[in-house]
Amino acid sequence: MALSCCSADDSDAEPLHSVDDADARGDLSGGDRTDRTPLVDPDVLHDLEDQLDSAAAARAFVRDYVAVWDERELRLSSAVARQNQAASLDAVLSLKITSTMVGATQLVALARGLEKLLREGSLDEAAAVLPHLHRCGLRTMRELTVMHLQKD
Rank of each mutant, 00 (worst) to 15 (best):
A79S: 06
W69T: 00
R63T: 02
D12F: 10
R59S: 01
Q51C: 03
V66M: 05
S29C: 07
L76Y: 09
R36H: 03
D20L: 15
A111W: 00
A8K: 12
G121I: 10
A8L: 14
L3C: 14
L123M: 11
L3W: 01
S94G: 03
G121V: 12
L117R: 13
A86L: 07
A87W: 02
I97H: 06
S18Y: 09
A87D: 10
A2D: 02
Q83A: 13
L110M: 08
L52V: 05
G103H: 01
S122H: 14
H132L: 02
T100Q: 06
A111Q: 00
A67G: 02
R75N: 09
D35A: 15
E71W: 07
L144G: 09
G113S: 06
E115K: 13
S29G: 07
D9Q: 14
T105N: 11
D41C: 03
H132T: 13
H148P: 07
E115D: 10
T98D: 03
E71C: 05
L114S: 10
V66K: 05
M1Q: 11
L45N: 05
E49A: 13
A126D: 01
G30V: 05
K116D: 01
T140M: 02
D23I: 10
T34H: 15
L130N: 09
D152L: 14
L28M: 14
S54K: 11
A126L: 01
R33L: 09
A2E: 11
A109K: 01
L110I: 08
V108S: 03
P42N: 02
A67K: 15
L39V: 06
S4V: 06
Q51L: 11
D10A: 15
L16V: 04
D32S: 13
L28E: 00
L39T: 06
G113H: 02
F61G: 04
M101I: 00
S78N: 01
D53V: 10
M101Q: 04
L138W: 01
G113K: 00
D47R: 12
A111N: 02
A60I: 02
W69M: 01
R33K: 05
A24F: 14
A87T: 03
T105E: 15
E73V: 13
R112K: 15
H148M: 10
